[in-house]
Simulated assay, not measured.
Amino acid sequence: MQKFDKLTGVAAPLPIINIDTDMIIPKDYLKTIKRTGLGQGLFAEMRFNDDGTENPDFVLNKPAYRKAQVLVVGDNFGCGSSREHAPWALADFGIRCVISTSFADIFYNNCFKNGILPIVVSKDDLDKLMDDADRGANATLSVDLETQEIHGPDGGVVTFNIDPFKKHCLLEGLDDIGLTMEKSDKIAAFESRRSEARPWA
């Protein structure tokens, strides 16, 4: 999994509440179990018109936000079904950080397992960051996971809290498999002892 320590990138404003996982990645894209290629379906029903052309009014289709790496979003982001394709689609598009006042629990935890930093802030801080993100080409935020700070384009700083274990996993690039492999020596030793004690197994 890709490590996350510091990120400076364009932040796109998406001030919509209750964006569910079906809005993030519609069910039509769930036929694959690959983590790549899903970026094309990210927010498909909002990004594209019925004829497949881009909706010019959607934020990620605007020139200033096409390469956004941060999303500043409304309350309760990632609600709905527990599809892991949602963080896969965000990551494949290039989104590494999502900032909101609240997230659905399963989506929130899935983000950490896919190299995305979900940040919970207060309503007042979200309003400030949404204003920063609404500046088009100047909408750049710097996120420092180690210090747990978000720096705005005018020098303002927003601090955030995060679970220490989840922070460690992101900083080290450890998903569930990576955490298991950290104990590979102990696993190998156990298997060796088991084979000696039960060679028939």
Rank of each mutant, 00 (worst) to 15 (best):
E196I: 05
T101I: 14
H85S: 08
R193Y: 05
L174E: 07
H85V: 03
G155R: 02
F160K: 08
F93L: 09
A137N: 07
N138E: 13
E146V: 14
T180E: 13
N161C: 10
K128I: 09
D125M: 06
T140E: 08
S122Y: 06
E196Y: 01
D175F: 00
L117K: 01
A197Q: 10
E84L: 02
I116N: 02
F93R: 09
E149F: 00
E182D: 07
S122C: 13
D132F: 06
E146W: 01
M130C: 07
L179E: 12
D92G: 08
N110I: 06
D125E: 13
V120S: 06
E84V: 13
D176P: 08
F112V: 12
C169Y: 02
L170E: 09
T101S: 11
N114Q: 01
E172H: 10
L126Q: 15
I116E: 06
N161S: 09
F112H: 00
I150F: 03
L129T: 13
Y108R: 13
T159D: 09
T159R: 08
I162V: 14
D185A: 12
F160S: 04
S142A: 11
E172D: 10
G94L: 12
F107T: 08
A197N: 14
L145K: 04
G156N: 06
I187H: 04
A133K: 00
R83F: 02
G136R: 08
D175A: 05
A188H: 12
T140C: 05
P164T: 12
S195M: 12
T101K: 09
P87W: 08
S195G: 04
